[in-house]
Amino acid sequence: MSAEVVIGAWVAVGLSLCMYSFLYKDNPFFKFGEHVFVGVSVGYLLTITYYQVMTNKLYIPMTQQGKWWLLVPAFLGLLLLARFIPSIAWLSRISFAFLLGISSGVAIPRQISSFILKQVEGTLKPVVTIGDGGIAWLTLAGLNALLVLIGVVSVLFYFFFSLEHTGTVRRVARVGIYFLMVSFGAAFGYTVMARMSLLIGRFDELMLYASASYGYATPVLLMVMIAGLLWWERGQSQKT
């Protein structure tokens, strides 16, 4: 195992344990990990942006392919930075206007087509189908389509505030609440699953780095962390 891999493992374990120490309580180890994360993320992002955007998408096409017209978007991008100088901050509006105009023009028709028209099409599926064998009344697909239809209509009723929720409207809206509850439950279940997956992924790596080939990084740093927290806790109690 190369030294850089082992050092990387020790850094990863140390920072993971710093972040997990928050489960005990807020402490200096957690704060250290949090600050390192913010700093490293920004640094990494800047480096990637420099090489992948400034070099690959701007410098190389201009110098090697003669695409000098790329100076126009580059200039518009620079104008955005004028926000930081109050006397010429108005210049950034040119770029913002360009961004807003292009984004709206591109996004609005596509979003309407993809997320409204296509979804309405999906909601209005036939409940009863007529084929060569006659009318198919109780198919699973038909039941599914009926459930989707009832769900969509009742939830829309729940969010329809122009009518007072009394009588039939109230009853339909109540059905909508049940559909919403089922959807929130499913979303929460998936959220739990996602968070547990993150924990499993982290534990998996912590276990890997606990081996002799990584210099027992996990057990050693865990002991150091526990000792550090005890020392910090003692200092806190002496202060109070």
Binding site: E121, A187, Y190, M193, A194, S197
Partner: peptide, 17 residues
């Protein structure tokens, strides 16, 4: 997708998107 965003994509699956 991650599990947390899966419910958001099931409607796209249903419509064949």
């Amino acid at each position: 997708c991650t599990a947390v965003s899966a419910p958001r994509f099931y409607p796209l699956l249903d419509t064949g998107q």
